[in-house]
Design a protein around this nucleic acid. Structure first.
Lengths: 250, 250
DNA sequence: ACACCTGGTGTACGACGTAAACAGCGCATG
DNA sequence: CATGCGCTGTTTACGTCGTACACCAGGTGT
């Protein structure tokens, strides 16, 4: 039941494609299905990613996909790990460069495939490519004499930041595709909304608006990444580092 | 068409409930619908949040909801802003305390309603409560003599971090509900997965695992928040601050 | 020769969001 | 009081989704 389902997912992701043991007599392959699904998601967003749509782009019937992929959920797992597989391995070097490389890898991955952030929101199964990249990120800070919990915490802090900034970026991309209207035009067209942005209700926002703070924003990724790495540097260079363990699971 | 739809959403969110102008003759109200929807999402997750399910908990038919809410998308907008309305206003004080308060508000909001992070992933319409909290966050750093772009960048950096850590937390909560199995038990039950975690494939991960780094993790939120604020302090205390503007829209 | 597996097809079902037509009620107007 | 209108809730129905299931064609092992 559940157990076997999950183990099947593990096998699907981690074990090499054994289907061609006999003969490559199949016109359709798992790789082709995953590839087509990624292309659909890239072009039309994850909401348009239906089994029918994927099959259509391949020129097969919907149900033919199920001969190569157990279900949509597992197809999503495979897509996510395939995209992680596109990223490069981090080179050896000082910790800050290594973490920065890791962050930029994630960032460019999210930019190329914004739907990733919607899929990893689900209970996804970790795949080999994702784990390999994570391992490389841990390796970047392995020479600093940190406790292993600290290594994990440092890397996840960076990952969380990139996730967060990627999420807003992905939202922007999606809105633009869905409405067919650019972010800027959209906001400019919301006169009904601006009426409510009065200085007494939202003093700081109107001030920032009037002084052009929203029109010429800083690069959110570059700015934030520099700050996060600065903050980690403060931690790493400190003599004694306080430990705050997680007390709750949630 | 689109324009009028969007403006209707604005009115829905920003203008006071005018429906009781005549008489409160309706058994169902918008507030009750939104409230029931939030309860369903809290208890069963946003995937279980269907119009049929909300109507059922209220003891009405599905279509009755549409007398009070234009559609599901707008209901989600209303839910998001209602939850923002539950948070407290930031008190005045030094910048670091103010930002920390803002971050902790978001964090506890996400912990109480993990589905928020799945909903804000969509092209949501900003509501008054969300904007008020954001305004207060800007106010926290308003006395530092920063340029207004910098004010925005500082606050969004914190928000992005909390979003990122909230997202992983929300995933954990969701997995546990869906599978009925705790995070720890789930991982422990994945022998099929552990087989692939060999030192030659994932040297750092196996090392961290063996030294207990995953078993006794640090508090991701506390750790990361402290680092992010440290990094912002470095920026704020610096004499000259480089400007990196956003060059692309995406 | 045969049964068997493997890969692709066609049909069908239940759940979803919601459009549209309808029914009962309270009120303002004759 | 009667009448008709507008608001609230109901019923039915449609199109789309994931996918279970039965079917079929052709290559393979015995």
């Amino acid at each position: 039941m559940k157990q076997s389902d999950r183990d099947r997912s593990v096998r699907l992701l981690w074990e090499p494609d054994a289907q061609t043991a006999r003969e490559p007599k199949a016109a359709l392959t798992r790789a082709r299905v995953v590839d087509a699904a990624i292309k659909v998601a890239d072009a039309e967003g994850v909401d348009a990613l239906t089994m029918r749509r994927v099959a259509e782009t391949l020129g097969f019937t919907t149900m033919s996909l199920y001969r190569h992929v157990p279900g949509k959920s597992e197809l999503l797992d495979l897509m996510v790990d395939a995209v992680w597989g596109e990223t490069e391995h981090a080179p050896a070097g000082p910790w800050r460069e290594g973490l920065e490389f890791f962050a930029r890898q994630m960032w460019s991955m999210y930019r190329a495939h914004p739907w990733m952030l919607q899929l990893t929101t689900s209970r996804r199964m970790p795949g080999p490519h994702a784990m390999t990249r994570q391992d490389a990120a841990y390796a970047a800070v392995s020479e600093l004499g940190l406790r292993s919990e600290e290594i994990v915490a440092v890397v996840t802090t960076v990952a969380h930041f990139v996730d967060g900034v990627g999420r807003t970026m992905a939202d922007r991309v999606r809105s633009e595709r869905e409405t067919g209207v650019s972010e800027e035009d959209w906001w400019n067209g919301r006169e009904a909304l601006w009426e409510h942005f009065t200085p007494d209700r939202l003093p700081m926002m109107t001030h920032i608006w009037n002084s052009g703070g929203f029109e010429r924003p800083l690069d959110e990724f570059e700015f934030g990444l520099a700050r996060v790495l600065d903050g980690l540097a403060v931690f790493i260079d400190a003599e004694d580092r306080p430990l705050v363990r997680r007390e709750t699971c949630l």
